[in-house]
Design a protein around this nucleic acid. Structure first.
Lengths: 199, 199
DNA sequence: TACCTTTGCTTAACACTGTTAAATAAATTT
DNA sequence: AAATTTATTTAACAGTGTTAAGCAAAGGTA
């Protein structure tokens, strides 16, 4: 009896519908306003039936991160296969990673726990600029002989910041890296960038 | 009449109490479970009086990020003043930044929108490891002449990842950096790390 | 055909959340 | 002592995730 198959296929379909609806809502209104009732509305059911497909809301997010990792892996793999030189492969893969983060912004957010906070923090909170000025003063000092533009200094600051903040974030969402390794990454990264200032 | 002053002082005190209680709760149970009623419980009031001190919950979080930035700035300033050499100053400041992130973990989280997700993602989700293996394979290939240890390769991978993920996070929580600057940071950072592989 | 059982789905409810308005108790001023 | 202002609470609204109970339609069995 093929009707069993048809029913199973329908079940698999609404499972996918739930995931699609969730991602749609997130793309329209952000992660904050994703609710079980809204998902149910979109798939034209009521909230409780979602629990026949997923244990809870967390399970939906988990499945979306899984889908995200699969997509990311696919993109990176394809980028890699477009090149032969190892150095080019690495660059292509990380550029694919970068592009994925912004074309699949919502997936990236749930995968790596990045909030989409307020936008113009520096404008409504001057205190947030102090660390920036503290560091850029010194960068300016070191780079003085080369007469750098404001943008040059900005680039250097964000290079420092991104590597450090990135390392911190990674360690916060999953503290898997041993501390000695972190210290080594941190120190060599900082001194590497610092060297690049007077180059 | 000094009673007015005393009352104002008391008001300021419960304002501080609200902030302290909030941070305490977060340290004990995480950002997710911070609620107005829990704060009220801790300061031995009921929830609505909090709204006489803060417009809403968001305002409390904002004030905590402000406090966070002040503390971070103080730490970095002190670190800077301990050195005379610019390069040393920069290293000291970023190390202070690093230390702040972990000693004041909860403040850092609300300041930069870092979620505290599940811990052992790779164990319950093998897909999450594919990007890692994809890249480390190539790193291994490039570094082969130096016969690197697993840790050596790990360090390089996390160096790549942290700078890229950091740059992405920064751009997601506040998209203030122009796109050309991002591209420049990204490209030079990647090629810089790649060069360091065969050094 | 009539009954029974299973399935699919909804309604109702619980315990929370942030937030606001109304009611009440306490303190101050007149 | 009465009136008014201030401080605080209770009650309520609309929303959240989640579970249990109820119903209605479909399937199988006699």
């Amino acid at each position: 009896m093929g009707s069993k198959d048809r029913i199973l296929r329908l079940k698999e379909e609404t499972r996918i519908n739930i995931l699609d609806a969730s991602l749609d809502i997130v793309k329209e209104e952000g992660w904050q306003s994703l609710s079980m009732r809204k998902i149910a509305d979109k798939i034209e059911y009521t909230a409780p039936i979602i629990y026949e497909y997923f244990a809870n809301k967390e399970a939906i997010l988990m499945e979306l991160t899984r889908k995200g990792f699969l997509l990311l892996a696919k993109d990176m793999k394809e980028a890699k296969e477009k090149h032969r030189l190892p150095a080019k492969q690495i660059e292509a893969m990380w550029l694919a990673y970068w592009n994925f983060a912004f074309t699949q912004k919502e997936l990236y957010q749930v995968m790596f726990g990045v909030d989409v906070n307020c936008c113009e923090l520096a404008e409504i909170m001057p205190e947030a600029e102090v660390p920036f000025t503290l560091v850029t003063e010194v960068i300016q000092e070191i780079m003085a002989p080369q007469k750098p533009s404001e943008d040059d200094i900005c680039v250097k600051y964000y290079t420092y910041w991104s590597v450090i903040h990135g390392l911190i974030s990674i360690n916060m969402v999953r503290r898997t890296t041993p501390d000695e390794i972190n210290r080594e990454i941190l120190k060599t990264a900082i001194s590497g960038i610092t060297r690049s200032l007077s180059a």
